[in-house]
Design a protein around this nucleic acid. Sequence first.
DNA 1: GATCAAAACGGACTGCGGTCCGCTTCTATT
DNA 2: AATAGAAGCGGACCGCAGTCCGTTTTGATC
Lengths: 193, 193
Amino acid sequence: MRPGLEPERRDAARNRELLLRAARELIEECGADGLTMGTLAQRAGVGKGTVFRRFGSRAGLMMSLLSDAEAHFQGRFMFGPPPLGPGAPPLERLIAFGEERITWVLEFGELARAADVSAYNRFDVPAAVLWHRHLEMLLREAGVTTDPWLMATSLSAVLEPERILHAVRVHHVAPERLAASWRELVSRVVRGA
Amino acid sequence: MRPGLEPERRDAARNRELLLRAARELIEECGADGLTMGTLAQRAGVGKGTVFRRFGSRAGLMMSLLSDAEAHFQGRFMFGPPPLGPGAPPLERLIAFGEERITWVLEFGELARAADVSAYNRFDVPAAVLWHRHLEMLLREAGVTTDPWLMATSLSAVLEPERILHAVRVHHVAPERLAASWRELVSRVVRGA
DNA sequence: GATCAAAACGGACTGCGGTCCGCTTCTATT
DNA sequence: AATAGAAGCGGACCGCAGTCCGTTTTGATC
C-alpha cells in the first residue's frame, strides 16, 4: 500500500498496525458489514480522526485489508505457473483466470464488496485496472480483434463479486457451475474470433 | 406501484403526488445524487416520516420515479414490434434488447443507480427478474442449452447501468461502440451453440 | 352529525460515515 | 539538550438515511 520512500512516523506505523489488527478482529466477530469506523477506533484505542487519516474512508480500510490477498493473486496470474500464469495458450489462461477469480471472490468477496467505492471510479482502482488489462491482453492474444478493451470490460462485469456472491449465497449456485458457465462463455467469445 | 385493490386514503394519495412532484423538481435542480430525503420532505411540505412511510427508503423512492419508464420499456420488449418485441429471430431480439437497454441507461441510468439497493437483493427486484427471464428465454430460443440461466446472468452483468455509465461518462466511449460490442458478444455466445 | 378504530402524520431521535481544527508528539537540526 | 515545525492525533461536530411514537386525520358505521 505504502511506498517505502517516505517512511511513516513511528506512532503512525504503530497505529496502523493497531488498527489493522483490530479491524481483522472485528470482522471476525461481526462480519465486514458489521464493522463501523467508530467501533474500530474505540477497539484500537485511537481517535476516529486517526482512522480516517490512515485509510481515508471505510472503503480504503477494506482495500488495505485486501491488499495482501490481492497482491498474491496478481503475482500468480502475472508470474506464476501455467495455466494461470504465462506459458499456457490464452484461452486456457482466460479460463483459469475466471476460475481462480471465482474462488477468490468466495473467500474474500465480502471484503471486496465492502471495499467497493460507490462512485463511478470503482472500476479505476489499481487492482481493477490491472485485471482489466490482463483480460484485454489475453483476448488479443487469443485473436479477439474487435474492441478487446470493451470485451474485457464485459468479461470483468461477469466476474464482479456482487453477482458471484449473489448467485452462490442467494440462489445456491454451486461454484463449479459458475466456473463451467465461465468456461463456456469465454470459449465462445474466443472461438467466435 | 400500488395494486388498486386496497385504495389509498385521500391524504396519503395527495402526499404521494406532492412527493413525486417535488422529487422530480429536486432531481431536475440538483441531480439524483443531490436529492436528500430531508430536503424532499421539506419541499413537499410533509414530515420526513411520511416520505419513508410512502416509499420505504431512498432506493424505493427512486424506483417509484423509474416505474413509468420501466413499464414502457417492458411493454416494448414483451409486446412491441420486432425486432425488440416478438416476431424477430432470437439473436436479433437479443441484439435489439441490448441496444435499447443501453439507450435506456443513458437516459435513466443515474436514477437507476440511485435506485440500486446496496444489498444482495438488488438483482431480485421485479424489473431485474423480468429482464433476466427475458434474456434467458431468448437464449433458449437461440439454441443456447448449457445453463441459460447463468448465461443470462452474465449478459445482465454486461448491461449493468453502473458499468455503462462509467464507460460513457469517464472513458468517453461512444454509445454506438457499446452497442457494437454487445452485438459482437451476443452473436458469439449464440453462434457458439 | 356523533363516534371510533385504523390509517397516516411529523419531527425528534439514533447511528453512521466523514470532516475539522486546536493540541500533542515526533524527529531533524543545531 | 534545546528547539522548531511538520506530522500525527482525537473527539466534537456535520449531514445523511432511517426509526419511533405520541398526535391528528379519515371515512365507515350508527
